[in-house]
Each structure stands twice: as C-alpha cells, then as structure tokens.
Amino acid sequence: MSERPRLRRAAALSRLGALYGRHLARRGALRLTRHGADTEAGLRRFDELYGPARITALSAGEREQLGAHGRCVACGLCGFAAPRAGYVRPERLPSQLTRSLPDLWVTRDLPLDAVDWRAAAAVCPTGVPLPAMRGFVRERLAREGVEPPVPRSSVPLPGTEPPTAPPAPPPVVG
C-alpha cells in the first residue's frame, strides 16, 4: 500500500468535520433537555471511571496545603526532635509516604498517630506542616477508603479486536 499523505490528511479532516456537525446537533439537543445538569453528571461520570484508581478530586483545603508538602529537604532534624514509631520516622511522612495521592493507602497499617508531629514540625527549617500532613492523610483515607487502587484490566473491552492483517510498514529508504 503506497502512502498518499495529502489525501489521508484531507480524509482525516473531512471525518473530523462530519463528526463536528453531528456533535453540534447533539449538543444543541442536550442543552434543551439537560440545562444545568452538567456539573454533577460530569463529576459522577469521572468518579465512576477513575475513582477505583484513586484519581479523585482534591478539596480546596488540600490544594492549598499541597505546595507546603514539597518543602522537605531531607535534612533529618525532625528525626532528632521526635522519636520514630515503628516504620514511621518523621521525615518519611513528607519525603516518602505522601508523594503519591492514589497510594496513601500504604499508610493504613502504620502508627502515624504515635509520632509527635508538633515537636517534629517545631524544628523543621523549611516549615513543612507535619501535623497538617498527618491530618491530610487521615481525611483523604476516610473519604476514599484504605484499599489499594484497582488495577485496570489489560483485556480490551468487548467488541474490539486487534487487526487480522497488520498494516503496511513505513517505506524503507534504500
């Protein structure tokens, strides 16, 4: 099969154009019937698709706090001010355990409340809000649960099949 890129581009844009027309007609009809219902419907749908993977909303308070979480420079001073509780050395809260929002569940068995976060925060040279970070983890887990994110199946959704005949490779020069 020889490549005819300009024709393919024209075909691609033509398909998009046809889709655009149908899209506008559909949007027009939706506006007549669902005016004002888009916000909750959109959030519900997003949560349905991505909630199991813990790709979920941030609250306004969480957004405000997140910038401060990254202040940790791993100086280790907090470890002198507040003893560890099992696996939880104070510096592990900012530098390890809170790096991934979908993976906060890994803290579920850790004795986070056994650490004196105020004492640790008092010596932090960059102002990492350690007590607030502990609260951040608690509140987020209370909202999302403590189970691991659900891995997405690698099987294609029904109705899709890989091609039986692979397309031609790109032209080889030489």
Binding site: T39, E40, F46, L49, A57
Partner: peptide
C-alpha cells in the same frame, strides 16, 4: 484499555482540581 472522555463544565472542573 482506555476510558471514554468526560465533559466537565467549569464548576465540575474546579471541584475536581480547585
């Protein structure tokens, strides 16, 4: 194994990411 897109109005987008 991707998911279809979701349309979010302004309010929904800001609730998802303030």
């Amino acid at each position: 194994a991707g998911r279809p897109h979701v349309r979010l109005d302004r309010a929904a987008a800001l609730r998802l990411e303030p």
